[in-house]
Amino acid sequence: MFWKKRFSFDKIPDLSGKVVIVTGGNTGIGFVTARELARKNAHVFVASRTSERGERAVELIKKETNKDAVEFLQLDLKSLNSVKLAAETFLARKLPLHILVNNAGIMATPFEKTSDGIQDQFGVNHLGHFLFTLLLLPTIKASDSARIVNVSSMAHERAPPAGIEFEKLNDPNALNSFQRYYQSKLANVLFTLELNKRLSGTNVYCNSLHPGIIKTELTRGVVADWGSWIKPFVYISTFFMITADDGALTQLYCATSPEIEEKNFRGKYFVPYGEVSEPIAQGKDEELAKKLWDFSENLIKEKLGDDVFSKSYA
């Protein structure tokens, strides 16, 4: 699929004074996003699971942009305790938060559970970001003209007929690895839908997007689950993929373009390169979005205690 490139790095406005967190900012489109935001003078936190890869990305961004306001933030989305600690670590800095890019993700990985006993693609791609966002929300709302960007995928269009199979979430035989990925990407769209409703009347612009089919490390999960025989097919498919630089453009548009505010884009779904599109019907199902929110909130309370949200999204 080919899209008209209506947004580019040079259209990113000056971001002096803006504070940003990019999850998965150590690699792929997350790295490009963090790099370009830093280049435009934002104070950028690269949220990554390992300090080795995160710190390496920070140093590379500093070198490529000649900017020093880039920091590493420890965030392991496979652990709700790590997510909570990451939010608390950032909040302890008493900084505003103008842009949150929920970019990190895994794709089509072998069935596995997180440290909290939750199916990992749902846990990493949706639940970890759900918790991280809500813990940071009071600070986001208190910041001047803020953005929340949830990176989904056109893969959400192939989610199960039920949308989210809540009761079968931890059943390794219910869905294959790709179907679990599709389901998690629909969850990103639904989370955006419900969060945007709850942000009514605030200065926070929350949107989701499909970044494109991109040549990144994301395909490693496919090989891990399906075996080395699939490597030639993955390699051939890369000829039809866009670069990480191009793949980052849509989330950079959602995170920085003045058009978001000028056109009051809230709760929208974007495709490359900054075009408003429509998710499938399930992605616009307000009842399903509310059900996902309640399910996610209750699941986190079950794992971390009822008081985990006592100071969040007030």
Rank of each mutant, 00 (worst) to 15 (best):
E165D: 09
T50W: 15
E297D: 06
L209C: 03
C206V: 05
F122K: 02
F72A: 08
E217C: 14
F265C: 10
L288F: 02
A142S: 02
G283H: 06
E278I: 12
G28T: 08
C206R: 10
R266M: 12
T256Q: 06
N66C: 12
T65E: 12
L136F: 06
Q251W: 11
K63R: 07
F191V: 08
Q74M: 12
E286Q: 14
E36K: 04
Y181G: 04
N41P: 13
T109A: 01
G283C: 10
L288D: 03
G247V: 02
I230G: 01
Y273E: 04
N66K: 12
T202L: 14
T89M: 09
K263A: 15
K215Y: 15
A146H: 00
L37Y: 06
F90A: 10
S200F: 03
L60N: 08
Q119S: 10
K290Y: 14
E194Q: 09
W3R: 07
E278N: 13
S152M: 00
Q121A: 02
H98V: 04
L249N: 00
F45R: 04
N207P: 04
C254F: 06
S16E: 14
R6E: 07
L60Q: 10
L186S: 05
F239P: 00
V234P: 03
R56E: 11
L249M: 07
G283D: 08
G25E: 05
N125L: 01
I61F: 11
M154F: 03
S79R: 05
A289K: 08
V308S: 15
L175Q: 15
G201N: 07
G25C: 10
S8T: 07
N81M: 07
R93C: 05
G163N: 03
S184Y: 05
N203K: 12
T243M: 11
E112K: 11
A174D: 09
K290M: 12
N102H: 04
I164P: 05
A314M: 09
Q282I: 03
A38Q: 12
S208C: 15
